[in-house]
């Protein structure tokens, strides 16, 4: 059952991704992108990952889409230009080769949901077995996130801070720098 839902959502997802690729209207694209994120969030729920779903919904559908819309508004771009110069053959070949490689790799991947596959052994098994006992937190995602792999999360927060600092560096200046000034090197 859940597999069927999963596949259905995935097909939708693929369609949505293609729609993002195809649409020329950029505001429509932003909306489609938001929808894509929402679908991903839905998929995460199906995959027993509510924390991730929660985050994806808030970030993908929320923040990313809002930022995209703001960017569109600020750059006053409505439609994508159709550029004739950019070759599309090379990207296509690269993508097909990469995709083929990945599919080749997935050959040995355990089936979806196979409890005996490697990722569920050893490391993860111990989290489930002892996680609550060792950290006192029943939500294992929180336990792993905050304690076992707390250092990753510290890194994650630092990434957020870095992004904040980066954006401030780029856009913090209230004065807009004009085209010519920049072309001549400030």
């Amino acid at each position: 059952m859940s597999l069927a839902v999963n596949l259905l959502l995935l097909v939708f997802l693929l369609v949505m991704a293609l729609a993002v690729l195809k649409t020329r209207h950029l505001f429509a694209m932003a909306m489609l992108f938001g929808l894509y994120s929402l679908l991903v969030a839905g998929l995460f729920v199906v995959l027993d990952a509510p924390d991730v779903a929660f985050t994806e919904a808030a970030v993908g559908t929320g923040i990313s889409t809002v930022l995209m819309l703001v960017t569109l508004a600020s750059t006053k771009s409505g439609h994508e230009l159709v550029s004739s110069e950019k070759s599309r053959a090379a990207p296509l070949i690269i993508c097909v080769v990469m995709g083929a490689l990945l599919i080749y790799g997935t050959h040995d991947l355990a089936e979806l949901g196979d409890a005996s596959s490697a990722p569920h052994q050893e490391v993860a098994a111990r989290y489930i077995e002892k996680g609550q006992e060792e950290t006192g937190v029943p939500n294992l995602v929180t336990a792993v996130l905050a304690s076992y792999r707390g250092f990753d999360t510290l890194g994650e927060v630092t990434v957020v801070l870095t992004a904040g600092i980066g954006v401030l560096m780029l856009l913090g200046n209230r004065k807009k720098l004009r085209v010519k000034e920049l072309a001549n090197g400030k």
Partner: peptide
Amino acid sequence: TVASVMVLLFFTFARRV
């Protein structure tokens, strides 16, 4: 951090619009 940065991002972007 997340709350502050997210709001900061939005403010900084919005100011450009």
